[in-house]
């Protein structure tokens, strides 16, 4: 019984170790979030500049800004919504199945209306 309890509760020493690990992980994550945000602002600005300038052809601009939006989607899902963290396998299935149906839906509707 005493042995069993020893496994369930962490000693004070182990707990403080765990706390330090959490703290380091959080500080690292904080930096990653700031970098992600800076990247998203940067990508948004590029997209607006690409549209505002006449230097690039229209067809290329459309493809280009759609790619930029796709990159921002990945940043949001994996950095801001923590999809990269442990225990997100089923959420990932849920959202990517949604994205798959969404893609089919957009292509299908566009095709029907045109």
């Amino acid at each position: 019984m005493a042995h069993h309890e020893g496994h369930d509760t962490l000693s004070e020493h182990d707990q403080s170790h765990l706390d330090i690990h959490h703290k380091i992980a959080h500080e690292k994550e904080f930096k990653q979030q700031i970098v992600s945000f800076a990247m998203m602002i940067f990508l948004t600005m590029i997209a607006f500049v690409a549209v505002a300038s006449d230097a690039i052809s229209d067809a290329f601009t459309v493809v280009f800004i759609m790619i930029l939006a796709g990159i921002q989607l990945v940043f949001q899902l994996y950095m801001f919504m923590h999809l990269s963290h442990k225990g997100h396998q089923y959420p990932a299935w849920g959202i990517f199945f949604g994205v798959f149906v969404a893609g089919t839906c957009v292509v299908g509707l566009m095709g029907m209306i045109w």
């Binding site: 949604g98 994205v99 957009v106």
Partner: peptide
């Protein structure tokens, strides 16, 4: 709640996709 909400967001994606598809067509 966590799992259910992610599935809900998957459904919301499809809702918006239908509106985007219509918009692109029109």
């Amino acid at each position: 709640k966590f799992l259910g909400f992610w599935f809900f967001l998957g459904g919301e994606t499809v809702l918006f996709a239908s509106l985007f598809g219509v918009y692109l067509g029109l």
